[in-house]
Amino acid sequence: MKFLCIPCDEQMATQVDGIMPEEKNNLVLKFKCKKCGHMIAMLTNKFETEFVSKLGVEAGGPSDMAKTPFGMMGSTLAEGKEELKKAGPDEGDFEWTQEAKDRIQRVPFFVRGMAKKTVLNFAKERGIKVIDGALMDEVREKVGM
């Protein structure tokens, strides 16, 4: 799927920062025209989200999760071995509370990488080290979804 800005006749780029950790399977993806800055949002429902998820790919380009062996299973199995969960991408200095982990876990796989990036960028900007539910609420507020 590609998006075109009609006035500029330019391709719109996926906004990596525009995806919100939405715990339902409804999804919001933002696209921006590099020329005029116009933004649009693509909204999908549960079934449409599932359809895209089938590919095992990630919107906004592959995150580290995609390069981790058994990455999809590790991040999607409700009960999995420690090693499997730990093998995920290194989050650097950040610590996620259980609530935050659970919430990010509920974001559909193929946009989870982007959602994580959004939250992490926000935390970095503010020098926050612990990511919790309140922070995630704040991010959602700010990104405006």
């Binding site: 590609k2 006749d9 391709q11 780029a13 996926t14 590919l55 790919v57 380009g61 592959p62």
Partner: peptide, 22 residues
């Protein structure tokens, strides 16, 4: 107006490339 083929990628996600990589 440009068509699908005119646009070089899918706007940054590179879904096809990811599928090919896998």
């Amino acid at each position: 107006m440009k068509t699908y083929e005119d646009l070089p990628s899918d706007g940054g996600s590179n879904i096809m490339d990811q599928v090919i990589d896998q």
